[in-house]
């Protein structure tokens, strides 16, 4: 009985991931995944469920958890999300912003979508300057993304184009306008440091 439940979840995840990969065929070259070598193929392993320890993003859980991550340009984002949503593939879990630091000069924005155990992560990199830190809003396709986009813009200073509401969500009302706490250069000091910046 336990064995059966595990394999059902796993089989569903594999199917879901195959479907996602089929949908993302036009962008297949962007998929970040080590190509299975001839040995793996000779063993008859499904290239999609390639050992997860060799994928970029790992996943907790049992069996061989399935994750697919794909790097996109900001301009391609809407089309990809639209394709997945049109096919009714999964739901948006959240949007994560990661500041890669001043040296890299980039902020990575990750859109996590899931269907069952399968997770697809869309990775979009934007610049750190005001003009380049711009990403299109996906609220027209997924309305529930609004909160996540508000969080993204206040925490990392990314301008989300056409988002329905760009008000502050978590930060206090008197927070200084150009201080973004999740940027690497922001030192996690106490609030008095922020007060000092404020006055």
């Amino acid at each position: 009985m336990p064995q059966q439940s595990k394999s059902t979840a796993q089989a569903q995840a594999e199917t879901a991931l195959l479907a996602a990969e089929a949908l993302l065929q036009p962008w297949a070259s962007h998929i970040n995944k080590p190509q299975p070598d001839d040995k793996t193929l000779a063993r008859g392993e499904n290239p999609l469920v390639f050992p997860y320890s060799r994928r970029r993003i790992k996943l907790t859980g049992h069996g061989r958890p399935d994750v697919l991550d794909i790097s996109l340009q900001p301009a391609e984002l809407l089309e990809v999300v639209q394709t997945l949503m049109d096919a009714n593939w999964g739901y948006l879990i959240t949007i994560t912003g990661v500041d890669l630091g001043p040296e890299a000069g980039e902020i990575e924005v990750l859109y996590h979508l899931a269907q069952g155990a399968a997770v697809v992560t869309l990775s979009v990199k934007v610049g750190r300057e005001t003009e380049t830190a711009v990403i299109p809003s996906i609220c027209s396709i997924i309305p529930s993304a609004s909160f996540f986009e508000r969080e993204l813009s206040e925490m990392l200073g990314i301008t989300v184009q056409n988002t329905p509401n760009s008000d502050r969500l978590f930060l206090p009302d008197d927070w200084p306008a150009d201080v973004y706490p999740l940027r690497k250069e922001f030192v996690a000091g106490s609030a008095t440091a922020v007060d000092a910046q404020n006055t």
Binding site: P2, S5, A9, H62, G116, A117
Partner: peptide, 13 residues
């Protein structure tokens, strides 16, 4: 717990 069993949820569904 059902979709992507973690910890011991595969042993105890």
């Amino acid at each position: 717990r059902v979709d992507a069993p973690y910890a011991a949820y595969d042993m105890f569904p």
